[in-house]
Amino acid sequence: MTNNHLSLSIVAFILLLFFFLFSWSAIAETGVCSSLAVPSGYKCEEFDVKTEDGYILKMQRIPSVADQPGTPVLLQHGVLADGMVWQLNSPGEALAFVLADAGYDVWIANTRGTRWSRRHEILDPSSRAFWAWSWDELVTYDLPATVEFVYKQTGQKLHFVGHSQGTLIALAALSEGGLGEKLISAVMLSPIGFLTHMKTKLGVLAAKSFLGEIYAWLGIAEFDPAGSSVKNLMKKLCRNPTVNCYDLFSAFTGKNCCLNESTIELYLQYEPQSTSTRNMVHLAQNFRAGAPTKFDYGGGENLRRYGRLTPPPYNFSKIRGDLPLFISYGGKDSLSDVEDVRDLVNELTAGNVSLVVQYVGDFAHADFVMGTAAKSVIYDAVVDFFRRHS
């Protein structure tokens, strides 16, 4: 290679490197907006929301496509996911876009520890302290911070939509007396208020074997699905002959009826996301306890934190009766089991909650956020529900 050719190669490499760094920094700054919303033809804004305990959460806003501002709707994703899940389908099928098309002002939350919410005032994600939380903290800090932010930005009460763990933290927060005065209504897709009858074999096996506690004891604070620690955990679980590790997605969620290949490819491009090991331990505790309780630190620490030896339960029957709730659940769902949802409905009914319940026999856990049939089967009903409670 001549000196001229070598010089041109170096220049080309520098330009390529500069382009890559510039492009990456732009994506890092705009996040979800630049990845999916804007390419799909929607306006999109990014905001930082700070929680009382110092976490800085990224939030996206997709305004109504109509000329006038719409009623705000907050979308809250589940565990091991982030706000991307609401946009993985086409504009005519993804809930974020369906709601914007229907005239709503869409706000998308991203829980602490996920791709766009890995910042804190003083803590670094590489530290154990950054990951010292479970879904209790999402109830106490993250969800109230995002609801309050939307409420102040818009000057309006808002509708809420949660999926999976997003429903759990909403139900818990509402049962503690929070959020209700700022919400118009709430939609729970694949609710996991109870996990007693969970049938996902990987989840049951992990919960029964106390593997999460072991990983926490070993100092593995971040539960990163792409990390070596979680991969080693999966290898251990997959040695069990009852677990089909050739289809891990279905092993976790149940057999989804309505996912297409392009959606799954997008999902694998952006998901799954990290959470804390303590959060996974807390979910396992709820399964073993047979009811949703606050995190169980052990007798002595429970006594110091809660004034009792066992963690206090969340009582969903205390949710305000005048807040309209819409629950949609599936017959093939291995995480949000039919029996558990019925137990949740019974508890809510005992509290005289205004409740609409939808059962979709063919749907499993992921169908509610990524299924191609979700728009006609569920989202249209959600929009009707919102309009009845404007």
Rank of each mutant, 00 (worst) to 15 (best):
M1V: 15
N3F: 11
S7I: 14
L8H: 06
S9Y: 07
V11N: 01
F13Q: 04
F18Q: 12
A26I: 09
A28D: 12
G31P: 04
V32R: 10
V38A: 09
S40Y: 14
T51Q: 05
T51I: 10
G54K: 08
G54A: 05
R61E: 03
I62H: 01
A66C: 00
Q68Y: 04
P72A: 08
V73F: 02
G78R: 08
V79R: 12
A81P: 02
Q87G: 14
W107V: 03
A109P: 02
T111A: 15
R115Q: 07
R115S: 15
S117C: 03
A129S: 10
W133P: 00
S134V: 11
W135M: 14
E137L: 09
V139L: 01
L143A: 09
T146G: 00
F149N: 07
Q153F: 05
K157E: 10
L158Q: 13
A170Y: 00
A172T: 08
A172N: 06
G180F: 01
L183F: 06
L183P: 01
S185E: 03
V187K: 02
G193W: 00
M198C: 12
K199D: 02
V204D: 02
F210T: 09
A216R: 13
P225K: 11
G227A: 12
K231E: 11
M234F: 13
N240Y: 08
P241T: 08
L248G: 04
F252G: 00
K255R: 13
C258F: 13
C258H: 15
L259N: 00
L259H: 03
S262Q: 13
E265Y: 12
L268R: 15
T277W: 01
T277H: 05
Q285E: 15
N286D: 05
P292S: 11
P292V: 02
D296R: 14
G299K: 14
N302T: 03
R305S: 07
Y306W: 09
Y306S: 11
G307W: 05
G307S: 11
R308W: 03
N315K: 11
R320H: 15
P324G: 08
L325K: 05
S328H: 04
S336D: 04
L344H: 00
V345L: 06
N352S: 13
V360T: 09
H365E: 00
F368I: 10
A374F: 02
Y379L: 08
D380Y: 04
